[in-house]
Simulated assay, not measured.
Amino acid sequence: MNKEELKIIQPEKIEYNMTIDYNELNEYEQIVFAGLLLASEKEILELLEIGSFAYCIKNIRKLKKITQKQLAEILNISENTIYNYESGKNKPNNSNREKIMNFLEIREEFILEVDEFYHEYLEEFELGKKEIEKDNKLIDKIVEELKKDNSIELRTIVLEVVKRRLLKLDGIYSVINGYRMLCSNIDIQIKQINMNNNSVAIYSKIEKCTIFMKFEDFIFSFLIQISENAKNIFENNRYKEKNLFQNEMNKKLSEQYKKILDSLEGDNNE
Score class of each variant (00 low, 15 high):
178 G>Y: 02
180 R>Y: 05
180 R>L: 05
180 R>T: 08
181 M>A: 07
181 M>E: 13
182 L>Q: 13
183 C>E: 12
183 C>D: 06
183 C>F: 00
183 C>A: 03
184 S>Q: 08
184 S>N: 09
185 N>M: 05
185 N>P: 00
186 I>R: 11
186 I>G: 00
186 I>A: 11
186 I>C: 01
186 I>E: 10
187 D>M: 07
187 D>K: 08
188 I>A: 09
188 I>V: 12
188 I>L: 15
188 I>E: 13
188 I>C: 04
189 Q>E: 12
189 Q>W: 01
189 Q>H: 02
189 Q>T: 02
190 I>Y: 06
191 K>N: 11
192 Q>P: 00
192 Q>R: 14
193 I>E: 07
193 I>A: 04
194 N>K: 07
194 N>Q: 10
194 N>P: 02
194 N>M: 08
194 N>R: 11
195 M>E: 10
196 N>F: 03
196 N>D: 07
197 N>S: 09
199 S>N: 09
199 S>Y: 00
199 S>R: 13
200 V>N: 07
200 V>F: 01
200 V>Y: 02
200 V>M: 05
201 A>L: 12
202 I>M: 08
202 I>R: 10
202 I>E: 09
204 S>H: 05
204 S>L: 01
204 S>G: 01
205 K>R: 14
205 K>M: 00
206 I>E: 08
206 I>G: 04
206 I>K: 15
206 I>M: 05
207 E>T: 04
208 K>Y: 01
208 K>H: 03
209 C>L: 05
210 T>F: 00
211 I>P: 00
213 M>V: 09
213 M>Y: 02
213 M>G: 05
213 M>A: 07
214 K>D: 14
215 F>N: 04
216 E>W: 03
216 E>C: 08
216 E>R: 13
216 E>I: 12
217 D>M: 13
217 D>G: 10
217 D>F: 03
219 I>E: 14
220 F>M: 13
221 S>F: 02
221 S>N: 15
222 F>E: 14
222 F>M: 15
223 L>D: 14
223 L>C: 10
223 L>W: 05
224 I>F: 04
224 I>G: 06
225 Q>H: 02
226 I>H: 09
227 S>P: 01
228 E>S: 14
229 N>E: 09
229 N>D: 07
229 N>F: 02
229 N>P: 01
230 A>Y: 11
230 A>S: 15
231 K>I: 06
232 N>A: 05
232 N>Y: 01
232 N>D: 06
233 I>M: 12
234 F>D: 06
234 F>E: 14
235 E>T: 06
235 E>Q: 06
236 N>Q: 02
237 N>Y: 05
238 R>L: 10
239 Y>N: 07
239 Y>W: 11
239 Y>S: 06
240 K>C: 00
241 E>Q: 03
241 E>S: 00
242 K>S: 11
242 K>F: 04
242 K>R: 10
242 K>N: 10
243 N>G: 08
243 N>M: 03
243 N>S: 04
243 N>V: 01
245 F>T: 08
246 Q>Y: 07
247 N>E: 11
248 E>A: 07
248 E>F: 10
248 E>L: 10
248 E>N: 06
249 M>I: 15
249 M>K: 11
250 N>W: 06
251 K>P: 00
252 K>P: 00
252 K>Y: 11
252 K>R: 06
253 L>C: 01
253 L>Q: 05
253 L>M: 09
255 E>D: 13
256 Q>D: 06
258 K>A: 01
258 K>I: 07
258 K>M: 08
258 K>N: 04
259 K>Q: 12
259 K>H: 08
259 K>T: 09
260 I>H: 14
260 I>R: 14
